[in-house]
């Protein structure tokens, strides 16, 4: 009984801890002003936030973020799964090296990774371009997706591919008729995960995009720096929606297939 009560308390505390920033964002997005020591704002008016979010700059930033997320998710999934598949097949040493390299892109401070990527992208003449930012985002996205895909392939029966090959299937047929159908859900999850990693990138975008490529996080930072907290809160909510949507989508998908999230 005491254990159940303690678990319930811990769960509630965790929920409050996680949801508080979202709750504050929602309140701030609809508050005209909200200053210390007020517990709650005096008056609400969403119009200023809506009109700020509806400007051409925010809309084009939203489109840029969506395009980057989709492109990096797609390419990152393909690259990450191919690297992971090779790593699992080739052997333990190569697998460990691959995991270490992938893990570095995940744990390295984004600002440090961003500086390196900035130099590299400027070196190929793509600084301040959408393509340059796409290539830069692809690095951490591929890292995340390689780690994810190594886990996926660890439980994938590679003998299916072997038997398919000796039964006459070409590598392409094995991929299209065996691997992709069997990993369909996992590929979808990879696409979403990769898109979300790109969706939240700020440091890399600023460094490589040089302020020319403006994504939603860049616009959000600009709003907050200029003191437009209400519009900033609204943009932050927009930025938080895809992750929430992804969790819902993955939960529904997991329920349909009987798997766990």
């Amino acid at each position: 009984m005491i254990g159940a009560r303690r678990d319930g308390f811990l769960l509630a505390a965790l929920g409050a801890w996680v949801l508080t920033p979202i709750a504050v964002l929602i309140v701030r997005a609809f508050a005209q002003s909200w200053r210390f020591p007020q517990i709650l704002p005096d008056a609400t008016d969403a119009w200023p936030a809506l009109s700020a979010a509806g400007t051409g700059r925010v809309t084009s930033a939203l489109i840029a973020s969506l395009a980057l997320a989709l492109a990096t998710g797609l390419f990152g999934t393909v690259i990450g799964f191919l690297i992971a598949r090779s790593a699992v097949r080739v052997g333990r040493r190569f697998q460990q090296l691959t995991l270490a390299a992938a893990f570095f892109t995940v744990i390295a401070p984004p600002i440090a990774l961003g500086v390196g990527l900035q130099v590299a992208v400027l070196g190929i003449g793509l600084g301040g371009t959408f393509t340059g930012v796409f290539l830069a985002h692809l690095v951490p996205v591929t890292g995340y997706l390689t780690l994810f895909a190594v886990g996926v392939f660890a439980s994938f029966d590679l003998s299916l591919e072997d038997e398919a090959r000796t039964l006459g299937a070409s590598p392409w047929q094995v991929l299209s008729r065996i691997v992709v159908p069997l990993l369909g859900r996992r590929l979808g999850e990879g696409l979403i995960l990769g898109g979300l990693v790109s969706w939240g990138q700020l440091a890399i975008t600023l460094l490589v995009g040089g302020g020319v490529v403006r994504t939603l996080p860049v616009e959000l930072l600009s709003m907050v720096q200029s003191g437009n907290d209400q519009a900033g809160a609204f943009a932050a909510l927009m930025l938080s929606l895809p992750p929430m949507f992804a969790i819902g989508l993955l939960t529904v998908g997991a329920r349909r297939t009987g798997a766990s999230l």
């Binding site: 029966d157 299916l160 072997d162 038997e163 398919a164 090959r165 000796t166 039964l167 299937a169 070409s170």
Partner: peptide, 17 residues
């Protein structure tokens, strides 16, 4: 390549798709 040999290899535990 495996698909061009005319050889079929069956695993210990058959890997049906």
């Amino acid at each position: 390549p495996p698909e061009g040999r005319g050889i079929v290899y069956m695993h210990q535990s058959p890997s049906l798709f």
